[in-house]
């Protein structure tokens, strides 16, 4: 599993690092901590800009993350192998450098440009399975240089996105479904979240005027069978779309809300991109968007 962790210097990024570290302790994922700076400052020759706040913050986050893996004898990120590799230094320059690696990749990166665009580019290039991004509680996110970056990332990401607003141990993972396209990857991601938090799973089908679409009903049946076979306790229920906001507000107090968006936003789905964007913005708790 490859996790891209998008960070800025806000308080919620601290929660993000802690949440990702817990997930990485279980999954031994390849992890990239990414910070984005809108403009590249002038630097002397090849010296990187060390005095940027995001650079210092990323260094702190790196230490905190690795602090979760103190026992190096069983740490996936402890350096186990090294060797010379050709590294692209840009501007047509390749350099053979000594590269140290652990069993799993752990990288810290800074990109320059517009945050949403850079984060999404990184996710595509690195084929991330999950993007984890922080967001402030309340109506307006305060992402540096791109206030609604989490909402925009959720709408356009090629993979699942966990929007972290706080640190908490959910009592239930509540997965809401409004269509019949559910990827194997999203089911697997839920399995890891359920294992991490040792919780039950709730499958929620969205209805309109008490009517559950036949294709959603069938998909829920398949998913339930999948989880029964995996011996994961999954509760099923339905929520009328008119009560969705209230349901999310109520459920998010103790549970982790997960919304199945599928790869494309289809016309007529309850979870349109705009609706999900609004949910991400206004939710008082973390939200997982599944693709």
């Amino acid at each position: 599993m490859r996790i891209l962790v998008a960070l800025d210097t806000n308080r919620y990024s601290q929660y993000v690092v802690n949440e990702v570290a817990k997930l990485a302790m279980n999954t031994w994922a390849d992890v990239t901590l990414l910070g984005v700076e809108s403009r590249k400052p002038a630097s002397n020759g090849t010296q990187p800009p060390r005095n940027l706040p995001i650079v210092r913050k990323l260094q702190e986050f790196r230490e905190e993350f690795l602090g979760y893996f103190k026992d190096e004898s069983v740490s996936p990120y402890a350096i186990k192998r090294w060797g010379y590799e050709l590294v692209d230094r840009g501007k047509g320059l390749l350099e053979e450098m000594c590269v140290c690696k652990g069993m799993k990749d752990f990288r810290v990166r800074i990109r320059f440009g517009q945050p949403t665009k850079q984060i999404l580019t990184e996710a595509v290039e690195e084929q991330s399975d999950l993007i984890v991004v922080g967001c402030s509680k309340g109506e307006q996110c305060t992402w540096e240089q791109d206030r609604n970056a989490p909402e925009k990332i959720v709408k356009a990401a090629p993979c699942s996105v966990l929007v972290v607003k706080e640190e908490k141990k959910p009592t239930k993972i509540v997965c809401c479904l409004d269509h019949d396209s559910v990827s194997q990857e999203s089911l697997e991601l839920i399995n890891q979240m359920v294992t991490l938090h040792q919780t039950d799973l709730a499958l929620v089908g969205l209805t309109e005027s008490e009517h559950l679409r036949e294709e959603v009903d069938q998909k829920m049946k398949q998913i339930l069978q999948y989880y029964t076979a995996q011996k994961i306790k999954a509760w099923v229920s339905v929520v009328d779309v008119s009560l969705l906001d209230k349901f999310i507000a109520d459920t998010a107090e103790k549970g982790l809300i997960a919304l199945w968006m599928g790869h494309k936003s289809l016309i007529g789905k309850f979870f349109s991109q705009d609706r999900v964007g609004k949910l991400v913005r206004s939710a008082q708790s973390s939200v997982l968007i599944l693709r």
Binding site: M1, W28, D30, M103, D129, L189, N191, Q192
Partner: peptide, 11 residues
């Protein structure tokens, strides 16, 4: 190696 699902084939 220890790979947690989901993973890409490339991994």
């Amino acid at each position: 190696d220890f790979l947690a699902k989901p993973f890409k084939l490339g991994e």
